[in-house]
């Protein structure tokens, strides 16, 4: 079997729907160039470990924050450009300090 034959054979079984994986990755890489992604990731990690420690589900956190479990899932991927308000809600929901500040 030649390479072209192998590719043709795989193409016959190609998924009907495009996976769009490249678009998703390009969006993520773009977000990364914006710099805030590393903060979002660090926050997602803190949230995940706090949830684990307190045995909280996404549903529990969502109820405490007044948002949907789907939003909590997105937040845990570390790809959300979080507002200060959302960060405060997380701090209150999980009783953890996420932001440390020098002013005030």
């Amino acid at each position: 079997m030649t390479r072209e034959e192998a590719i043709a054979r795989l193409s016959r079984y190609q998924s009907q729907e495009d996976s769009a994986w490249r678009l998703e990755e390009e969006r993520l890489q773009y977000a990364k160039t914006r710099g805030w992604l590393r903060y979002s990731r660090r926050i997602a990690i803190k949230v995940a470990l706090a949830m684990k420690q307190q045995n909280l589900s996404r549903q529990n956190v969502a109820e405490r924050m007044g948002c949907s479990p789907q939003y909590v899932s997105r937040l845990l991927k570390g790809e959300e450009n979080l507002s200060l308000e959302t960060i405060c809600k997380l701090e209150n929901a999980l009783n953890v300090a996420i932001l440390q500040y020098e002013f005030m």
Binding site: L28, R41, A48, M51, R58
Partner: peptide, 9 residues
């Protein structure tokens, strides 16, 4: 590998 919750587990 980008899911903080899955990775924490």
């Amino acid at each position: 590998w980008s899911d903080a919750s899955w990775l924490a587990d």
